[in-house]
Simulated assay, not measured.
Amino acid sequence: MNEAQQLRQAMRATERVHRRVLDLDTIMRDGRRLRRRRRLAGSGAAALSVAVVVSVAIGVQAARPPEPKPTTPPAATATATGPTATPTRSESTQEPRPVGDVVASGIRYGSEERVFYLVPIDVPGQSRVTIGLVAGRRAADGKLTSDYVVNDVEGSDRRPGFHQIGYDQSGPIPTGPPVPTFGYFVGPAERIVGTAESRHVDARLATWSRDPKVKIFWFQPAQLRPGVPLDGIVALDARGRKL
């Protein structure tokens, strides 16, 4: 029963006694009782509302996942490997002893000069390959440093014609003086002409002191940039005929 219904009920109770006269005392007493109830109900509702809010707040607090505890990430592990070793020459390393004379090229790098010389080599299973041609440097005190060696890997190192040709392979970041294109020819060559970049370039020649048929040749860097591959090469005899 709501408040209005209760008020009407109180009014009807007085009417039963005096139809024409309202019992104001009864009405006021019942009205005060209802107001007290309403106030209590309102306070209870407010208290309930606060309780609900608090419980929700507590519920939210309880439902929030706990803050993760800071953890120290595991240290990264890696295989303990040192940097790739770059082959270097130690003082104890013996340069291969030249076979025959050392050929001077006239190309200089400060106090050093580019030189060419043949050295003994051993190719397994190839008994007829016994020499290799080195592009090296000679210091002012005569010490030799080999930069590049070329040799056959099969057949005979004295067969007529051109043998292996060496090119500069220092890459985009040179680690030493550039190596001119070089090689050797077996036969009565008096002139060697290379073709590169649509140009004909003459090589310099020197005869090996141990065998006059072996002609060591190289191209001057000013005429053929080191590393530029040859498109062709020919050897000519004293009469200009191709060998």
Results as ranks from 00 to 15, higher is better:
Arg158Lys: 09
Arg35Met: 12
Ser92Thr: 01
Ser105Thr: 14
Ala135Ile: 04
Leu118Arg: 09
Gln94Tyr: 07
Ala46Val: 03
Ser92Pro: 00
His200Leu: 12
Gly227Phe: 02
Pro96Ala: 12
Thr93Lys: 03
Val21Ser: 14
Gly155Glu: 11
Glu15Gln: 14
Leu48Tyr: 11
Gly31Met: 15
Val53Tyr: 10
Val214Met: 01
Val50Glu: 10
Ser49Val: 10
Val56Cys: 11
Arg159Gly: 11
Arg159His: 11
Asp231His: 06
Pro73Ser: 05
Thr77Trp: 03
Ala189Val: 00
Phe217Ser: 03
Ala13Val: 10
Ala104Leu: 12
Ala139Gln: 05
Val99Trp: 09
Ile27Ala: 12
Asp202Pro: 01
Arg158Val: 11
Leu144Tyr: 03
Arg191Ala: 13
Thr81Lys: 02
Asp152Phe: 11
Phe116Ser: 07
Arg29Asp: 11
Ser105Trp: 12
Pro120Thr: 13
Ser90Trp: 00
Gly194Tyr: 02
Arg159Ser: 13
Glu112Ala: 12
Ala47Trp: 12
Val50Ser: 08
Asp101Phe: 02
His18Cys: 05
Val53Glu: 07
Ala139Glu: 02
Asp30Tyr: 14
Thr84Glu: 07
Arg225Met: 14
Val54Asn: 06
Arg114Asn: 13
Pro180Trp: 01
Ala140Lys: 05
His18Ile: 03
Val99Tyr: 06
Pro226Glu: 07
Glu15His: 15
Arg36Tyr: 15
Arg38Ser: 13
Thr79Ser: 07
Gly240Tyr: 02
Ala222Pro: 09
Ser170Gly: 08
Arg137Ile: 00
Tyr167Pro: 04
Asp157Arg: 03
Ser111Gly: 08
Lys215Asp: 03
Gly232Val: 06
Val193Asp: 00
Val150Glu: 00
Ile27Gly: 06
Asp202Gln: 04
Pro180Glu: 04
Ala238Trp: 05
Ala13Glu: 14
Val54Gln: 09
Arg137Gly: 04
Pro87Ile: 04
Lys242Ile: 12
Ser49His: 06
Ile192Lys: 00
Glu113Lys: 01
Pro177Tyr: 05
Gln6Gly: 14
Val54Pro: 07
His163Leu: 07
Val53Asn: 04
Pro188Leu: 15
Phe162Leu: 13
Arg8Asn: 14
Arg33Asp: 08
Arg158Trp: 08
Pro66Cys: 13
Asp147Arg: 00
Ala235Val: 07
Ala78Asp: 00
Thr26Cys: 06
Ala104Met: 10
Glu113Ala: 03
Thr195Pro: 05
Gln223Tyr: 11
Val60Glu: 12
Thr207His: 01
Gln220Asp: 15
Leu230Lys: 05
Gln126Asn: 13
Glu154Gln: 15
Phe217His: 07
Val102Ser: 03
Ala57Tyr: 08
Val56Ile: 14
